[in-house]
């Protein structure tokens, strides 16, 4: 016993290091289970409140920019109003189908914590379970896809940004409808990669990439970015294209959270029909 104590006393520096390091690694490993780890994230009340204060202050400096964007969005929506159209032929009448169902609803949220420098970037939003936000909802702006909600607390939610190795978005090329999958390679935060484009597809610089609407998370036709370069990598049979994002993740402040009202139904059918996958 005395020897043991002596041993511990002699090597206490090393032993304490091993102990604390193991503890850190265990915490790190539990990162995968977001819900258990949630207390450590900035969505916990203390640091989230601090970030909210900072975000409030910082938002004043972006007001001009934000107003500009709002004006553009407004103009776009006004453009679609019914009053803008005259009926060209009076023999046909348009009836709105009362059976049509609503598929997506939108909630707006402010970003209170964001990063672009890490390999896996997270965003914290100031809306949570109390506002109807649930995991696996999409986060967008009219200028592009932002990410997917990963975990929620009662007033905040944690989003896996598009700049995260686990985020994959199903997209298509607007002009010909060919689909591919969008993922970030961790280098430049303005550029993401669109993979699995068949080699017979004719690509051009400046082709617009939009969401495909195939996943249950994002609505169709949200513009994402434009193609700037493409090639077939060694050992692969598909094109991988570089897509320059319309969205600058570094000055994001306001986003919309998308709720797909038919998500459950679609997923249930797809899982039911293909049990092998």
């Amino acid at each position: 016993m005395r020897n043991l104590l002596q041993f511990i006393y002699r090597y206490h520096f090393f032993l304490l290091f091993v102990l604390l390091f193991t503890l850190a690694m265990v915490l790190n490993a539990s990162r995968q289970h977001y819900k258990q780890a949630f207390i450590w994230h900035s969505a916990n009340t203390f640091s989230a409140t601090l970030f909210q204060v900072r975000a409030n202050l910082a938002s004043y400096f972006h007001l001009r920019h934000v107003n500009q964007r709002l004006l553009e969005e407004n103009a776009k929506l006004l453009d679609r109003l019914e009053e803008n159209f005259v009926v060209a032929e009076d023999t046909t009448r348009i009836y709105y189908d009362s059976l049509s169902q609503r598929r997506y609803t939108y909630t707006h949220a402010d970003i209170i914590q964001n990063s672009v420098t890490r390999r896996n970037n997270h965003i914290t939003l100031n809306k949570g379970r109390d506002h109807g936000v649930l995991p696996d909802m999409g986060v967008i702006t009219p200028y592009g896809v932002v990410g997917v909600v990963k975990a929620v607390s009662s007033n905040f939610s944690l989003v896996n940004s598009l700049l995260h190795s686990e985020t994959m978005v199903s997209v298509k090329i607007e002009k010909n409808g060919h689909i591919g999958s969008l993922q970030w390679n961790g280098e430049n935060y303005r550029i993401v990669e669109m993979a699995y484009i068949p080699p017979h597809v004719e690509l051009e610089e400046g082709d617009t990439v939009v969401t495909s609407g195939f996943s249950t998370i994002f609505p169709e036709n949200i513009p994402v970015g434009e193609i700037i370069d493409w090639k077939i990598r060694r050992g692969e049979t598909f094109y991988t294209a570089k897509v320059k994002l319309h969205l600058d993740f570094n000055n994001l402040a306001h986003v919309y959270i998308v709720k797909n009202l038919m998500q459950e139904e679609q997923e249930e059918l797809e899982n039911h029909a293909s049990p092998d996958i």
Partner: peptide, 15 residues
């Protein structure tokens, strides 16, 4: 880690 949303990687490396 608490302030940067990165669970325990700053802890481990600082240690």
């Amino acid at each position: 880690d608490l302030f940067t949303d990165s669970l325990a990687i700053h802890t481990a490396s600082t240690l």
